[in-house]
Simulated assay, not measured.
Amino acid sequence: MTNVFKISSVAVALSALVAGPAAAEMKYDNGSGGSVLLYGQLSPAYVWVDDGVSTYSNLVDNGHSNSRVGLWVTQPVGQDTFTFNFETALGLRQSFAVSQNFTPKGVNWSRTFLRKIDFAYNSDQYGKVSFGLGSMATDGIAESDFGGTGMALYNGIGDAAGAFRFQPVSGIGATVPIGTVTASLDGGRRGRVRYDTPEFNGFRVAVAAGTEVLLANDDDFYDIALRYRTDVGTAKFKGGFGWSRRVRNGVNRDNTVGSMALELQSGLNFAVAAGNRHGGGDYTYGKIGYNANWISAGQTSLGIDYYDGNDFLVGGSSSGAMGIAIQQKIDRINTEVYMGYRTYELNDTATVYHDIDSLIVGARWKF
């Protein structure tokens, strides 16, 4: 009963935090067709975890979509467009960084919180060239999804509690972080050069080559991705498939991953994904959701998902996660409130581990 009261209290507090008047768009025109847009979001959350031995709770910044500020500069150049995008997270305590033995400082900004320093030139005829810190070609390729529960439930299993470790039932042996055995193999953001083709009959191809610029290593990255999006009658479909390579000290690590999503006119939606780390594990992921307009405040979304991984820890190991979530939009104040629950399991031939349960409650306010 105490936990229920605490969770309810936190939910009320988070809602109150964002329940102010909606901010006007902070956009400034330069008189020549160009503009500067300031934007951002606050994403506070409460996370509770039961690792089968003890329970833990923390106020965090939701790693599914963290608090951030950004700047968009847009300038037409004839029929083409030049853009510059700067974006950084605020450096708040991330949900995926908290574990049984470590709680980061409440605010501790470092360069790893930089998200984008991205210059781009876009031509409808020839495509788009991007340069700087930004998305590789496969960023988002594992996350095709029409469900509205992304703050608590999507194919980023480790974002809510990924540093918490599975505990051996015997109390002896290595503990294993959730995030290590629930990888989505999705692409990330690097210092890179990227090219996107123009869209052709719903298809678009992207290629990128980059290097790690935020961490103290010299990893190189290469990837290619194909995306497709279309409407089928009253239904919506999108999907993608990609291949990526990381080169570290002359050793290649290759990933192949793809995802698809479908939304029906009724609001019922489905998402599937699968990925393979060549020689290092594979997974499948499925999600069923429902988007409805039950109340005037905004869209209500429900979802349930399941993740099934193999060989990410050692050969013959298996990992799994199942989640359920609800997310509510409050359009008038550009806010979403949500609650999500997950249970995680890990099995290998040598060690028996306790299951882990997690609960996340929070709100995201965009400005």
Rank of each mutant, 00 (worst) to 15 (best):
Y28M: 13
M151A: 04
A163L: 00
I333K: 13
G202F: 03
Y126I: 12
A24F: 00
R115V: 04
Y195D: 13
Y28V: 15
R111M: 15
I330W: 13
M260K: 03
R227P: 04
A261H: 03
S95G: 03
I178N: 14
A89P: 08
L92Y: 09
Y228K: 02
L226R: 14
S67M: 09
F119C: 08
D254T: 06
N255L: 06
A161M: 05
G233D: 10
N291F: 00
E143S: 05
F166I: 05
N310D: 15
A321R: 01
Y344R: 01
A142I: 07
Y283N: 10
D357C: 13
G179K: 00
T335W: 06
T138Y: 11
G40S: 09
K287L: 09
S296C: 02
K236Y: 14
V176H: 10
I157S: 00
R68N: 04
G298T: 01
V232F: 02
D331L: 01
N62K: 11
F367W: 08
A22E: 12
L71Y: 06
G202S: 03
A16I: 11
D219Y: 14
E336T: 07
A261K: 12
A161T: 09
S301L: 03
A292Y: 10
N66S: 06
L302M: 03
G179W: 03
N276C: 04
L153A: 02
A22Q: 02
N217H: 07
F84T: 15
R68A: 08
W109I: 14
I141F: 10
N269C: 05
S15K: 09
G315E: 04
Q265A: 15
Q79N: 12
R248F: 15
V337A: 15
A350L: 08
S266I: 05
L38W: 11
G127K: 01
N62Q: 06
F166R: 00
Y46K: 12
G78M: 14
R248M: 13
D118A: 04
F270S: 01
G78I: 15
L37D: 15
V69I: 13
F166S: 10
S358M: 09
D331Q: 00
V193F: 15
G91D: 04
V272A: 00
L38K: 08
D159Y: 06
A16E: 02
L262R: 12
T88N: 13
A23F: 11
G34T: 08
Q94F: 06
V314P: 12
I178M: 11
Y195T: 14
N155Q: 07
G148Y: 10
I330C: 09
A24I: 04
S95F: 02
G134I: 08
I326F: 02
G323V: 02
S135P: 00
T234C: 09
T343S: 10
H278Q: 11
D308K: 03
G34Y: 04
V169D: 01
N217G: 09
Q41T: 12
V337I: 12
G280T: 10
Q328A: 04
G33D: 14
D218L: 09
D231W: 08
A19R: 02
V213S: 05
T112E: 00
G267T: 01
N291I: 01
G258C: 04
Y353N: 13
G303H: 03
F270T: 05
M151T: 12
G303V: 02
